[in-house]
Each structure stands twice: as structure tokens, then as C-alpha cells.
Write a protein that binds this DNA or RNA. Structure first.
Length: 746
DNA sequence: AGATAATGTCATGAG
DNA sequence: GACTCATGACATTAT
């Protein structure tokens, strides 16, 4: 029974929380407000003084001590503990890391790159690579360009790292709830699926043709590259059969690159970047593993394609992503970035971790920012449209919106990290400017709207003052004694006041019915005003009846001294009062009166068993009377039990509402934090991207020519160095890294 | 008079 | 086994 009750209570709690989190407000408040007086009666009921429930101690029982096993406080205690743990579980959501994972989403914002973007044909390579990543099932998926806004956010919410490996089911449920909630915000599970990326890459493919002619790389046009595409026998995806100069595995350290850069004069502003550079995370599939490559150069962040319907699988993926994310956020963000000298604006803006490995090899800051640092504002929103190198051809490289990065932030793959999505293809050129900034739009509108609405709902919702007031009432309740045996004087006076006079009719009635008292007043009015004596005073005719505890007793036993002079009462009013009292009597009281039970129902009901039996032994009672007394006792006790039971239900509802409000408040806070982290992350990505472009754009080969982004990419090595490697190698490494999560799952 | 809420009662199970 | 309590279900009463 208890287990069942607990089960139901918990079920109700979970359900309420769920409803709340999905937006359905459990508006107990309204009910309570409109029904407050009766509710208080129910809650504090006349029987509360008889019950073991410590209504007056609600606030002091959270520690779990001194709670009666059957007290509702015990439920409160466990509920509070459980909810507290849930709230703490909420805190385990590390939004910062969660947000980082958002960059798993590959979204090329449309309209950010002009249609004349050169080297668009290279986008085909990257798109092909994505096909391989997504696997055969992703072809079913539709292009979900509209989801770009939500996906980033979804990632943020969905991939929170499990701080503790021993997540309980409640934790997971809660996480799932929040995750679904994020879905409600617009995010979808597609973020974990590369199919949508492939779709985008398909779009890139379609667009590449028109941009081929504009490839500005001398002798290495997109057309030529496209002709060199091979088809992967396993995946059917195309990839470049040979990257010019790529197989030599030219892995220049960034320092070397910078030296080259310095030797090749200020060309960066004139360098022309093809816009279709694919990040390594979108690597072109290739079964051949290039020798000499280190696996640790690549981020293991990418996960495999998952069935969107396999919840368990998705959760596993989610957990793995969260783990990787946590790792990468802790490492990549600090290692990729360099240690700038104190006071350096970049280091300040980036909040970079000092003493990062990169700095040991080469100073990106010195190399890339020497002449152009004043050209772009890292934190300015204008950075989106700010030409880094001033060249019109380079301009498209700068992302038009900050959230367009489709690479995985935190990845050790600098190519994937730094290259703007525009570089991944020309799909952005024609994808349509109608696509807004996924992240920005989400942050600035839906997200913020949600937060503001939530805050508003919280403020307009349950008022904690009401709960505290109720608790105060509970406290005051303890001071009101309802024990009839202890207030005979008041009973006597009340009796005299309301009905007992010299009026023969009244006396006759009482005599005729035997020693039937006026418990009706007690049972009725005490039930309604058990707690607030002021309520009694509000009823003039009851002001003397509040504690009528004698009863089933002969009028002769009543204190006639308390009776008002007979002349003061008119016969008509006395009859009315008698009728009223008669009506207020319960059925059992009427029965007791009719059966001439010589003591009050209150005693019958509330006396301990021993005293009750002792009382019965004092009288010579018939079987019918004894049976009635036992029934009265049983029903009376059950009545109080029912009142307590209902009170507990209401208390449960109240507590649930409070808990829901607390959870909503936590949710709002977490969302706010998420927004803040998203903002900072976006800014950092912008800066990292700019840095990448700046460094890469200034690199020159032996002939003083800039490296083609379609053929080379900067990659962050495990030792902190930055290497310039052929893009094919980078792609292969990326593919290898992508397989790791899959294998680990198996 | 009917709807609804509040309250009472019974049956049942558990401690 | 008696007693008490909790609670669902139903009945009754009140609004």
C-alpha cells in the first residue's frame, strides 16, 4: 500500500514536472486561490489537532528527523530530497561544454558568400566526404535548412557531458526532459546525424558548377580537381584522386609557414582564397591511410550516423559526444589558442589559456596579426562582413554570420575548426539569403523569447508567499485545541446561549432524545474553523459554539448558570436556533441522541481505546447502543482520516506546484547561461576563424604563391604545433577519427 | 434542477 | 486478532 502510494505520488510528481517542462502549467494556484477558505479547512481540518501530522512543523522537517512515519511531512521530506537532487542534477548540465558540441552541426548559412565564389567545384569533394560520413541511410533525409537555428542550440542542450558516470534513471529522465525541451525550442536530433549535412553538401554540389570558372587558383581550377575525383568503391563517394603536391605529405610547421610568410612579403591582402575549402571534419572518404599521419591530430569528436528512432542508441551517442566534448573543450580551447603576451588584445578577447603548446612552436599572434590586426575587430559584430585582407576575393572567406561555422569547435583539426563554412562550398552562394543566422537567430529570438516568457510565467505563476502563508497557518493551527473534554465551560455557555433556556419545548426535546449533546456544533463548525477562530467569530450565532464538547448528556447536567435569562430569548428565535443546531448535528449525533448515548460523540471517537472501554464499562448499555457507539467511533475516526488524506493530497499538489516553479526557475537560469555561453562561443569561433584565415592566407610556398585552401589545411598537432598538411591527408584523418566513436560503440 | 465541490461513509489493505 | 490509519470509491450534502 505504501509502496503503491509512493509510486503514485512519484508518478504524479514526474508527470507534473514533465507537464511543466513541456509548457503545460499545472495551475494549482488558481484552484487554491478561488477555493482557499474550504481548502484551508481541508488542509487544517478540525481533526488536525487529533492527528499525528505535524502541521506546525513543516518547515523544520526537511532534515527528515522527527517526522512521524505516517506524517505527510515525511512525504514532503522525501519529495524535497528528491527534487533537490533533481535540481542538482540539472546543475550537472554543463552548458558551456554543451554549447561547444553545438558545433557539430554543419550548417552553411546561405547568402553569406557571393555567387562568384571561386573554387566552388571543390565543394563537391567535401560534400562527397559527408556522404560517406552519413552512410547509406542519410539519403532519405530531407534538407533541413530550416533547422539551422535550432540545431546549434539543440546540440548545446543535448550533449551535456555527464559529469558523473553514475547517472541515475531520474537524472537521465530529467536530462531527456530537458533535451526534449530543447527540441521544443526548435532543435532536432538531426544534429547527431550527418545526413542533413550531406544534404547541404548536395546543394553545394549543385552550386559548384556555376562557380568553377571563377576559381582563382592558378592552374588548379575546380574543374581540374573535379576531373580528378575518384569514386570510393565502398561508399560510392567521390574524392580527389590526387592532390597536387599533396602526397608529398608536406607538413609544414606553422613556424615554417610563418617564416615563409615573412619571406613572401605582404601578399595576404591580395591573396585569393577559394571559398570551397572543406574542413577535415567533412573529410573526403578514402580507404587509404596516408602514412606518417598521426591519429591524434584529429579530433574524435565526430560521431557516426545514428538511427533517429533509436533512443537508447542516441543516448549513448549523446553521452559519448558529451565526453568528447568535455575533453575537447578542456583541451582544444586551451591548446589551440596561443598564449599571447599580457595585455595583448587578442589574448584578452579570447580569454586564452596561457602557455598553450602552440605558442611553443610558433607565435600565431605575431605571424598573423602583424599587419592586419587592426583590420578586423574580433568581437565586433561587423567582423562578419569585415574583409580580413581587404581583397575582394578574400572577402567571401569571412563568414557573413558568426554561426555559420560548421566545423567542430574544439576539434584539434584546425582546418575543420577554422575554415568558415563558406569555404566548404558554394552552396552558401545560392542557398538563399533567406536563411538567417542559425545560431544568432536562435539566440536572439527564439531562445531569448523562451527565456523571457519563462521568467514571466514564473513571476506570474505560483506565489511563494502563499505557501509560506499556508505554512504559517499550519503553525498557528497547533495552538488551537479541539479536545472537547478540555473545554466544557465553553460548551456550557454555548449551549445556554443558543438553545437551552427555560423554554419547555426545548427542554422537552432534549429530554425526549436523551443525553444527546450538541456535538453538531462541534463537529460541523470545528471542522470548518479548526484553525482560524476568527472564522467562528464571523458567524455571530456560532461565537459561543466553537467548542461545544459535551453532549449526548442530559440537559440537567448542563450548567444552568451559564444560561441566559429565559426572558432574553424569544421563543421563535430559540426554536430557530434549536432547529439550526439540530440541522448541524451529524447523523451519528442524531443517532446517538436518539439512542440516548450518555456521552459525547467526541469522546466516543477520540478517547484512547483503554479510556473508551473504561467509559463504556461505566454505563449499562444495550447491544444496540454499543453497536452504535462502535460505529460512531469507527466513522468518526474514518472521517478524520479522510480529511487527513485529502489534506495530504492537497499538500502534495502544493508541493508539486512549488517544485515545478523551482524547476522552471532553474530551467530559465540554465537557459540564460546557455545563451551566454553560446554568445561567448560564437565570438571565440569568429576570432579563431579569422585567425585561421589570417595565418593561412599569409602562408606562401617556395614559389611565393599562396597555398590553396582546397589543397592544404592547417592542422593542430597533439604537441601543440600547427602543421600545414595536404587536404587529402586531413580528410583521411578526419574520417579515421569519425570511425572511432562508432567502433567504440560496438 | 442540475453541476460541482465538499464532506461523509464504506471497504480494504497495511502496520 | 483487534485496533488504527490510509485511501479509493461511492454516497450524501452543500453551494
Amino acid at each position: 500500500m505504501l509502496s503503491l502510494k509512493k509510486y503514485l505520488t512519484e508518478g504524479l510528481l514526474q508527470f507534473t514536472i514533465l507537464l511543466s517542462l513541456i509548457g503545460v502549467r499545472v495551475d494549482v494556484d488558481t484552484y487554491l486561490t478561488s477555493q482557499l477558505p474550504p481548502l484551508r479547512e481541508i488542509i487544517l481540518g478540525p481533526s488536525s489537532a487529533y492527528t499525528q501530522t505535524q502541521f506546525h512543523n513543516l518547515r523544520n522537517t526537511l532534515d527528515g528527523y522527527g517526522i512521524h512515519p505516517k506524517s505527510i511531512d515525511l512525504d514532503n521530506y522525501f519529495t524535497a530530497r528528491r527534487l533537490l537532487s533533481q535540481v542538482r542534477a540539472l546543475d550537472r548540465f554543463q552548458v558551456p561544454t554543451t554549447e561547444v558540441n553545438a558545433w557539430l552541426v554543419h550548417r552553411d548559412p546561405e547568402g553569406s558568400v557571393s555567387g562568384s565564389q571561386p573554387s566552388s567545384g571543390l565543394a563537391l569533394e567535401s560534400s562527397s566526404g559527408l556522404q560517406d560520413v552519413t552512410g547509406p541511410d542519410n539519403g532519405v533525409r530531407e534538407s533541413e535548412t530550416e533547422q539551422g537555428f535550432s540545431e546549434d542550440l539543440e546540440d548545446l542542450g543535448a550533449v551535456a557531458p555527464p559529469v558523473s558516470g553514475d547517472l541515475t534513471k531520474e537524472d537521465i529522465d530529467l536530462i531527456d526532459i530537458l533535451w526534449r525541451q530543447d527540441i521544443d525550442l526548435g532543435a532536432g536530433r538531426e544534429i547527431f546525424d550527418y545526413s542533413h549535412r550531406q544534404k547541404e553538401q548536395d546543394v553545394d554540389k549543385e552550386l559548384q558548377g556555376g562557380a568553377e570558372q571563377e576559381d582563382t587558383w592558378p592552374g588548379e581550377g575546380a574543374e581540374a580537381l573535379a576531373r580528378n575525383l575518384l569514386v570510393d568503391g565502398e561508399t560510392g563517394e567521390s574524392f580527389p584522386a590526387q592532390v597536387p603536391g599533396g602526397e608529398d605529405q608536406t607538413a609544414l610547421s606553422l613556424e615554417e609557414c610563418l617564416r615563409l610568410l615573412e619571406a613572401t612579403c605582404p601578399f595576404g591582402e591580395n591573396a585569393e582564397f577559394p571559398a570551397d575549402i572543406s574542413s577535415i571534419t567533412e573529410a573526403v572518404p578514402s580507404e587509404s591511410e596516408p602514412p606518417g599521419l598521426q591519429n591524434n591530430l584529429l579530433s574524435p569528436l565526430l560521431t557516426g550516423t545514428e538511427s533517429p528512432f533509436d533512443l537508447e542508441q542516441q543516448w549513448q551517442d549523446l553521452m559519448s559526444i558529451m565526453e568528447m566534448q568535455a575533453m575537447e573543450v578542456n583541451t582544444s580551447t586551451s591548446e589551440i589558442l596561443y598564449d599571447a603576451p599580457p595585455g595583448d588584445p587578442l589574448s584578452t578577447n579570447y580569454s586564452l589559456a596561457p602557455n598553450t603548446p602552440i605558442n611553443q612552436n610558433v607565435s600565431l599572434h605575431q605571424a598573423s596579426l602583424g599587419g592586419c590586426s587592426q583590420d578586423f575587430s574580433l568581437f565586433s559584430p561587423e567582423v562578419e562582413s569585415l574583409p580580413v585582407a581587404g581583397s575582394s576575393t578574400l572577402l567571401p572567406l569571412v563568414p557573413s554570420n558568426s554561426t555559420s561555422l560548421n566545423s567542430t569547435f574544439g576539434s584539434t583539426n584546425l582546418a575543420g575548426l577554422f575554415f568558415p563554412p563558406q569555404l566548404n562550398g558554394t552552396a552558401n552562394d545560392t542557398a538563399g539569403p533567406e536563411l538567417p543566422d542559425p545560431l544568432g537567430g536562435l539566440l536572439d529570438e527564439a531562445m531569448l523569447d523562451e527565456i523571457s516568457l519563462m521568467d514571466l510565467a514564473i513571476e506570474e505563476g505560483f506565489n511563494p508567499v502563499q505557501a509560506s502563508q499556508l505554512e504559517e497557518e499550519f503553525d498557528s493551527d497547533s495552538g488551537l485545541s479541539l479536545d472537547s473534554s478540555h473545554s466544557p465551560s465553553s460548551l456550557s455557555s454555548s449551549e445556554g446561549a443558543v438553545g437551552y433556556s427555560s423554554d419547555s419545548e426545548t427542554l422537552d426535546l432534549e429530554e425526549a432524545e436523551g443525553a444527546v449533546g450538541y456535538q453538531p456544533e462541534y463537529s460541523k463548525f470545528c471542522r470548518m474553523s479548526y484553525q482560524d477562530p476568527a472564522q467562528l467569530s464571523c458567524l455571530p450565532y456560532l461565537e459561543h459554539v466553537g467548542h461545544n464538547h459535551t453532549y449526548n448528556m442530559a440537559p440537567s447536567a448542563l450548567d444552568s448558570a451559564d444560561l441566559p435569562p429565559p426572558s432574553t430569548l424569544k421563543k421563535g428565535s430559540k426554536e430557530k436556533q434549536a432547529d439550526f443546531l439540530d440541522k448541524q448535528m451529524s447523523r451519528d449525533e442524531h443517532r446517538a441522541r436518539a439512542m440516548k448515548i450518555p456521552f459525547t460523540n467526541d469522546k466516543i471517537i477520540n478517547l484512547p481505546v483503554e479510556e473508551f472501554n473504561e467509559l463504556l464499562s461505566k454505563y449499562q448499555l444495550s447491544e444496540a447502543q454499543l453497536s452504535l457507539i462502535r460505529d460512531i467511533r469507527r466513522r468518526g475516526k474514518n472521517k478524520m482520516a479522510a480529511q487527513n488524506c485529502r489534506k495530504r493530497k492537497l499538500d502534495t499538489i502544493l508541493n508539486l506546484e512549488r517544485d515545478v516553479e523551482d524547476l522552471q526557475r532553474d530551467k530559465a537560469r540554465l537557459l540564460r547561461e546557455k545563451v551566454e555561453f553560446l554568445r561567448s562561443l560564437r565570438q571565440m569561433k569568429q576570432k579563431v576563424q579569422s585567425l585561421y584565415q589570417e595565418v593561412f592566407g599569409r602562408l606562401r610556398d617556395e614559389n611565393g604563391r599562396p597555398y590553396s585552401p582546397s589543397q592544404y589545411a592547417l592542422q593542430y598537432a597533439g604537441d601543440g604545433s600547427v602543421l600545414l598538411i595536404p587536404r587529402t591527408l586531413a580528410d583521411q584523418q578526419a574520417r579515421r577519427q569519425e570511425r572511432k566513436p562508432k567502433d567504440r560503440r560496438k
